[in-house]
Amino acid sequence: MTTAPAIGRRRLSRGTTRRLLPVLLDLALAGVICVAGFTTLSGPLQVLEARAVALVLGWLDPTWSSGVLPGHVLLFRGDGEIIDAVVTASCSSVLSVLGLVALTAVVLRGRRLHALGGLVVAVLAVVVLNHGRLLLSALAGLQWGEGALVLFHDWVGTVWNLVATLGGFLVMVWVTLPAAERAEQDVGGRHTARRPDSWARPGLGYRTVEAEQPPAHSRRTTVTGLLHRHVLPRRLSAWLAARREAARVDYRLGHLPASRRVERVHELAADGLGAHSATLVAVATYEVDPLVLDALADAVAARQWEPVTGHRVAALRLWARGWLLARPVSTSPVPEDRTGDDDAAVVAVARIPVPQAAPSRGTTPSPDRPSHAAGSPTPHSFARPSAPHPPETSR
């Protein structure tokens, strides 16, 4: 009898539990936001919205309404009828606002400041649209009586509230997610970034020949650009720009010839390893030309004095050390007319062998595991292999 199926089921159950735990935590977070937010914000938001409706009606005609009662709007018709319009929880925008907050905290929290900006814009849009719904309901009551107010609130207002919530969600997603130029995808989902074929890895994407488009020369005006030019201080704007540049990968580097890539790597490293850390890590990850990799390793090794300011800089230091230790002592000469388009040249990195247990006396080594002979090109460690000794001649 074997226990393999039971072990497999146990491992599958553990993996499923690990995947379900974050989902359950997100659902619990959304529930806490909705319950706690409704208990805290429902009453004050109803009072605020009723006061806003009475204020706008007072601007139109001071004899139409009164907001003397918190959460109520008193409507005075011309025939002497007084309608007491109560802003209940279903009339308020608190449910839509809390739904957007929960979605931002659970789904879009990875965007951080972008998600916060999108949430602020969406909440303002939902509150303004709900205020328009309440205002139109009050005007319908003033014009045609209490029945028209209830009819507008129950039918038109319900559809209005649904459309307003959906519109607020779309606005939040539009503000939160990156623009089409940064997403580097067209409407059909094809990648449009100018990336080399050697870096065509899953998730990175690259531009094919038929998908290339002429670059746009017009400068697009964005809210972020206006803030950086006219609102934010220069020091803060420069710090944010440097932080954004450090996390950006310049895939245009891969289209240059090998000699130009070497120069560009030295230029990027001269600004500091932390200034273009994402691009340098991408070069170390996806570059296949040994000359470019040697240039990157030498540039990183030449800046040992630079402090480690992030995980990418630490990764570059570790990679450069391993590359320099595993690099052969002598390399084959490279022709001068090399253009760098031959991406087939790859340097084999030495592997650290797994230590095997010493064989006992009287046993012979296994034939399928031959030992490395003297002068084998594969080193036994990451240390630089020494040059082979000349054979001794007998006297």
Rank of each mutant, 00 (worst) to 15 (best):
H255Y: 06
A278K: 01
S259H: 11
R243C: 00
L268H: 07
G188K: 03
D271G: 10
R201A: 15
V292I: 08
P233L: 02
A278Y: 07
P257E: 03
E181T: 12
G272A: 10
V281L: 11
T222K: 01
V187D: 14
E267H: 08
R219N: 05
D298K: 00
V292Q: 01
D271Q: 13
G225W: 02
E263V: 06
L227I: 02
R194P: 05
R229A: 10
P233W: 02
V231S: 01
R235G: 09
G203M: 07
T224S: 13
A216W: 00
V283L: 08
G272V: 08
R195N: 15
H266A: 15
S237L: 02
E184K: 06
R201V: 15
A238H: 00
A200T: 01
P257V: 00
A180C: 00
T285I: 01
L253Y: 12
R264C: 11
R234Q: 14
E287R: 02
A200N: 13
T285E: 13
G225R: 12
H191A: 14
S198N: 03
R248D: 15
A270Y: 02
V223I: 14
R248G: 07
R182F: 12
A269E: 13
G203H: 04
A200G: 04
P214V: 13
L232M: 02
L204C: 09
H228Y: 09
D289I: 01
D298F: 04
H217V: 14
R182W: 14
D271H: 13
E210P: 08
T279V: 03
L240N: 01
A269P: 00
T279E: 08
G272I: 08
A282Q: 10
L280V: 06
H191P: 05
W199F: 13
E210G: 07
A278C: 08
Y206Q: 13
L291M: 10
P215V: 02
P290K: 12
G272H: 07
Y251P: 00
R194K: 04
T222G: 04
A297E: 03
L227G: 02
G254M: 12
E267C: 02
R243S: 09
P257I: 01
A247H: 09
L296E: 00
W239H: 06
R235K: 06
A211D: 14
A275V: 07
H230M: 06
G254K: 10
L268N: 04
R264N: 11
V249M: 07
A295M: 03
A297M: 02
R194C: 11
R182M: 12
L204P: 00
T224M: 05
H276C: 05
V187N: 04
V265H: 04
A242R: 11
R260T: 14
A247E: 15
A238M: 01
G203D: 05
H217L: 15
T279H: 04
V281E: 10
Y286G: 08
E184L: 11
G205C: 07
G254V: 12
A301V: 03
